[in-house]
Design a protein around this nucleic acid. Structure first.
Lengths: 146, 146
DNA sequence: TCTGAAATGTATACGTT
DNA sequence: AACGTATACATTTCAGA
């Protein structure tokens, strides 16, 4: 990818609502040229979307945890992501190298909600779970240095 | 927090560039009422910012990993986050319960870059590291169901 | 905290280079 | 690819309820 496109991506990753006017100033292009480039980056999937970054404590989801999962039956088909997608408390699902097969990041309101979620995960995907509770988050969602 | 504010937060978490006009339609408020609420949510820190979601494969950062760290000297002051913040490849830093003290999520271009980053982490924070490489990401950055 | 209207600023389509 | 212009649309501010 080319220099100006990288710059546009970096600027929007850091401020997803930056106006085309400001992007034009930062890149030295005209507003319409920037506009074209952003639309092309969206269409090509380089920019997959935009999100507001939310303070989870403020919206009733103060408990974050990492949940590593391992199949109970290693011979069974591995469709865990499809079986877990409907659980909205799971923010992300990464397939990983190592002893376990996936690492999930989950957000819930309370330890009780976490307990219930773990039961749902185990039942839905036929897996065992290992949970690491997050105590605090010094930083998160930092934009990539593209 | 109140019903309409929750809805606004959920809508912006799912589409960070949604216009005030559309937010007004979705919530049944006037444009200026929505506008006021969004500004208030931003000011109160419920909405911490906005980000474009980037395809990391497309911007030259195809390798993601989780790095768990543990202090070499357990008696030393624990200022690892401050010592690691300057490393842009670290997207997030969570203090966790369990055997290790922090879990970092990192993005790099290649195994060689990962090796170098791990050396920087160990040197900067005087920690040992345990790295779990991400093979694929079935889903990520899902908006919270506020 | 809301509304509606006015003023300003931005997004987008289109024609041109 | 990029630019400039014209128009449509969105944001922002403000007075008043």
């Amino acid at each position: 990818m080319e220099e100006i496109d990288r710059r546009i991506v970096a600027l929007l990753a850091a401020d997803g609502r930056m106006s085309f006017t400001d992007l034009a100033k930062e890149t030295g292009l005209s507003v319409s040229a920037v506009h074209q480039r952003v639309r092309r980056l969206e269409k090509r999937g380089v920019i997959k979307g935009y999100a507001a970054l939310v303070d989870f404590d403020e919206v009733g989801l103060p408990l974050t945890a990492f949940v590593s999962i391992k199949p109970i039956d290693p011979a069974a088909a591995d469709d865990a992501p499809d079986r877990l997608r409907h659980l909205a408390a799971i923010e992300s699902c990464h397939s990983v190298a190592g002893d376990e097969s996936y690492i999930l990041k989950v957000r819930v309101g309370s330890p009780r909600d976490l307990e219930e979620l773990l039961n749902q995960i185990r039942a839905a995907a036929n897996v065992s779970t290992r949970t690491t509770v997050v105590l605090s988050t010094p930083f998160d969602y930092r934009p990539p240095a593209v």
